[in-house]
């Protein structure tokens, strides 16, 4: 498979990010039904159909080069978006190993990894990187191992330490988050960082999810989808930069919904790490504009219904209240009321 990268796209300022028809087709539309509520929606992260976002452990797509540049800009402005506590060094190497092995296995034409004992040679063709280093010796890399590989893989990452029957967010590389702060959450436990989420605690979602994750086994990763909405194709929607993007929520009008309003889906996967017994949490985000969605009528209809019936608590938490009515109105043009069977297919 060859990927036609779009290296010059932007996710800020000019916002030239666009999806190709193929990218829209593989968009991980998350709604099986006309209503949405939180649940323990986790399943084994097994190899999905060819070309789908589930095909590989870490999905690389046409936005790869541009996203990595946007990450570099964010890190340059705010180095605090990459945090790692000292006891996480084994977990950092675990993460580097997992990502390098997965990418070189799944995309051999883009990435290669050759090992001579602990002497590793890594080639990242799209980003023009050629690095020889000693596995386990951070001094042989230009930056710590987690930051090194995090700058070369699409998606945000949190590494959890497992102790006291709990998970602690002790490392993170977060440059495209849905309005939560790594600086604030670093070192917190599973229930603590999920504190702000409405309704899910009462439903027992987090209790069950945590117990399930504590038993997660090596080579049996799991995944789930999460979603929110973003105005403009912006990756860096962090609390730290709120003044730069928050006001955009008021800029949505009936005429610009199609371009401006995006459904933002996170493919989240969890991997048990072997040396550290920690856990890698990857948050791979996908953005589709309302115009993109409307190219697949079932998706536009379904999203219209999901938004129309979304509980207020969720709409408020996700920050959609301001532009939700305009978006529902826009989507209603596509919804003829046809009864849709279950499933997410376009």
């Amino acid at each position: 498979m060859t990927i036609a990268f779009k290296p010059d796209e932007t996710f800020r300022g000019t916002y030239t990010y666009r999806n190709s028809p193929q990218a829209i087709k593989r968009f991980p539309f998350p709604f099986h039904q006309d209503q949405y509520m939180y649940s323990v929606n986790m399943e084994p992260h097994t190899k999905g159909p060819e070309g789908s976002v589930f095909e590989n452990a870490f999905d690389i797509d046409e936005h790869y080069i541009a996203e990595m540049r946007d990450r570099a800009i964010t890190l340059e402005r705010d180095p605090g978006r990459c945090v790692s506590l000292p006891h996480m060094m084994d977990a950092e190497w675990d993460t580097l190993e997992l990502i390098m092995e997965s990418l070189s296995r799944d995309y051999p034409e883009l990435f290669t990894l050759t090992k001579d004992g602990e002497r590793w040679h890594w080639v990242n063709k799209p980003l023009g990187i050629d690095q020889t280093f000693t596995f386990g010796d951070a001094a042989t890399l230009p930056c710590p191992p987690f930051e090194y590989i995090g700058r070369q893989c699409q998606g945000d990452f949190v590494i959890m330490d497992q102790r006291d029957n709990n998970l602690f967010a002790d490392s993170g590389m977060i440059t495209s988050q849905a309005d939560w702060s790594l600086m604030f959450d670093a070192g917190m436990s599973f229930m603590e960082w999920h504190g702000p989420v409405p309704l899910a605690h009462e439903l027992g979602v987090f209790d069950r999810a945590l117990k399930y994750l504590l038993m997660l086994q090596q080579s049996r990763p799991v995944r789930r989808l999460n979603w929110t909405m973003t105005i403009n194709p912006r990756l860096d929607t962090s609390p730290e930069t709120y003044p730069e993007w928050g006001p955009d929520r008021a800029s949505v009008t009936p005429d610009n919904v199609g371009d401006k309003v995006h459904l933002r889906v996170e493919l989240q996967a969890l991997f048990r790490l072997p040396r550290s017994n920690g856990m890698l949490f990857s948050i791979r985000g996908y953005l589709a504009s309302m115009n993109d969605l409307a190219t697949h009528p079932r998706w536009a209809k379904r999203f219209h219904r999901v938004l129309s019936t979304l509980p207020n608590e969720l709409a408020e938490y996700k920050g959609l209240v301001r532009y939700k009515p305009t978006t529902i109105e826009w989507l209603s043009k596509f919804d003829d009321g046809e009864v849709l069977p279950g499933g997410t297919q376009p």
Partner: peptide, 9 residues
């Protein structure tokens, strides 16, 4: 099925 681990329901 979904989670295959007794959590999702």
């Amino acid at each position: 099925y979904l989670c295959r681990g007794g959590a999702c329901g």
